[in-house]
C-alpha cells in the first residue's frame, strides 16, 4: 500500500453517461500505470433509476467505497446528491449539477434546486454548483455534460493526482464517440472548475 486510494462516487440517473465518465477516468489512471477499480450499476437498475458508480484510484482492493470515506461526490442530477451524500468523508466536496429530473411517478414531491443546495450546505458539505447541460449545449454538444463534469472534478481536487488533463484527453480520444467535441467540453469544465476553486 504505497499509494493512498482516491475514492470518488459519481451519481445520477440511468442514461446520463455515468459509466462512460467513470471509465474514462479509470482508463486514464491505468494508462499512467496506476491501479483503478470501478464498481458499476447495470441491468434493471439502469432503466431511468438511480445510479451510483464507485471509482477508486490507487492501491484499493475492494470495489465498494465505505460510507463516510469518499474524497469527492459528483452528482449529474441534483436530488441524487441527497441520496448519496452519506458517502462523503468529513470536509470532502461535492460537485452538484443543477439538472433536476423528476421521477416519472404520480404525486412525487420534488424538492427545488435551492432546497437541495441549502440542505447539502447545512450538512457541512462544500458544494460546487454547476450547469453542465447548459454549458455543454452552448458548446454544441448537449450529450457532453458528463465530460464537462469530469473536467470540473479534475480542477476541484485533482482526483488524487492519479491522472492529469493530457491523460484524460488521450483516453477520450481513444474511447469516446466524437472525441474532439467532448474534449472541448472537458476543457470548459476544467476551466470553470479552476475559477470556482478560487
Amino acid at each position: 500500500m504505497s499509494e493512498k486510494p482516491f475514492n470518488l462516487v459519481i451519481v445520477g440517473v440511468g442514461g446520463q453517461g455515468i459509466i462512460t465518465m467513470a471509465n474514462v477516468l479509470a482508463s486514464a489512471a491505468v494508462a499512467k500505470d496506476h491501479n483503478a477499480i470501478v464498481a458499476e450499476t447495470h441491468g434493471l437498475s439502469q432503466r431511468g433509476g438511480t445510479v451510483i458508480v464507485h471509482v477508486r484510484l490507487g492501491e484499493a482492493e475492494a470495489p465498494l467505497i465505505m460510507e463516510g470515506k469518499a474524497d469527492l461526490l459528483i452528482a449529474l442530477e441534483a436530488t441524487e446528491a441527497l441520496r448519496y451524500a452519506n458517502y462523503l468523508a468529513k470536509g470532502a466536496p461535492a460537485i452538484v449539477d443543477s439538472r433536476l429530473l423528476r421521477p416519472p411517478l404520480p404525486n412525487v414531491e420534488m424538492p427545488s434546486l435551492e432546497e437541495v443546495y441549502k440542505a447539502l450546505g447545512e450538512a457541512g458539505i462544500r458544494v460546487f454548483k454547476t450547469n453542465a447541460v447548459e454549458k455543454a449545449e452552448e458548446l454544441g454538444n448537449p450529450q457532453g455534460a458528463n465530460m464537462y463534469l469530469l473536467g470540473y472534478g479534475l480542477a476541484v481536487n485533482g482526483y488524487g493526482g492519479y491522472v492529469d488533463a493530457p491523460s484524460i484527453e488521450e483516453t477520450i480520444r481513444q474511447k469516446v464517440r466524437n472525441p474532439e467535441a467532448n474534449i472541448k467540453v472537458f476543457r470548459a469544465g476544467y476551466e470553470d472548475g479552476l475559477k470556482a476553486r478560487q
Partner: peptide, 12 residues
Amino acid sequence: KPRVNLSAPPRP
C-alpha cells in the same frame, strides 16, 4: 458522515 435533512425523491 454528513447528515442531510432532506430526502431524495424515490427513483425506481
